[in-house]
Design a protein around this nucleic acid. Structure first.
Length: 233
DNA sequence: AACCAGGACGTGA
DNA sequence: TCACGTCATGGT
């Protein structure tokens, strides 16, 4: 077992299956947990189950760019009330209404534009699966957003790298802090068993761990993987 | 009350 | 290429 797999195992044993991607109306109710342990649909990898959930993941991935999930949830709740978890409706609705709905997620001018451009792209796909290259060619979709969409909406084996990933594993000592996105991505894809479920869980576990212990000011004393980490403070 | 959040893009050098 | 500024709300 590689070092990385060992960390994965420890995180999974401590936090359990994460049930990502977070979907708002899982079981028909609003979430009581916002991105914390054991939310959503743990151990069920059959999501998304319909077009609406599929599109919800895509726009959630865009809305959460540099933004905390609770803020994104507020925006998605607004969108859902307005029947805007739908690419056609996003394109036809009044811009002020759309902008107002996504306001809690921040960067609303940029994100308004991103949602509209993505919606047009999404309709053009006509339910086919985009390549990573095609996604990256869409304005507003960078590497992390592309990989999130591919991994969680399309179940494609693309490892998602975010700031938490770089933070945790540079502290552990296996990465440089500002390592190139694609290098980090391929590093994990080489180290890990080739399974989209592992990729889904690992990224979610990384987020959970970063929120709980490996914050900007880390809580190393209580950290569950401190024995694997070089940077004990 | 600063600081940070599940980034991406535009710019100038 | 690359370092840096910009975008914006809300929780801690």
């Amino acid at each position: 077992m590689s070092n990385i797999e060992k960390v994965y195992k420890l995180l999974f044993e401590n936090y359990g299956p994460q049930g990502w991607w977070p979907l708002l109306d899982f079981k028909g109710v609003n979430p009581t947990k916002t991105g914390s342990t054991q939310g959503y649909h743990p151990s069920d990898y059959s999501f998304p189950k319909n077009d609406s959930e599929h599109f919800e993941i895509c726009i959630g991935a865009i809305l959460t760019q540099n933004t905390s999930w609770p803020n994104v949830e507020k925006a998605i709740i607004n969108l859902k009330k307005l029947n805007l978890i739908d690419p056609k409706n996003i394109l036809s609705v009044d811009e002020e209404i759309l902008k107002n709905a996504i306001k809690p997620a921040g960067y609303f001018n940029q994100k308004l534009k991103k949602l509209k451009i993505f919606s047009k792209f999404y309709i053009g796909l006509n339910r086919t699966t985009p390549t990573r290259f095609e996604l990256l060619n869409v304005w507003g979709i960078g590497p992390e957003t592309a990989d999130s969409i591919l991994l969680y909406a399309y179940k494609k084996k693309e490892f998602v790298v975010d700031t938490y990933t770089k933070r945790i594993f540079s502290r552990i000592g296996v990465l440089k802090k500002d390592e190139d996105y694609d290098k980090v991505k391929s590093f994990f894809e080489i180290e890990l068993k080739s399974d989209f479920k592992i990729y889904q869980e690992f990224h979610a576990l990384i987020v959970e761990h970063a929120k709980k212990y490996c914050q900007t000011k880390p809580k190393c004393d209580e950290c569950i993987i401190k024995n694997e980490c070089k940077q004990i403070i």
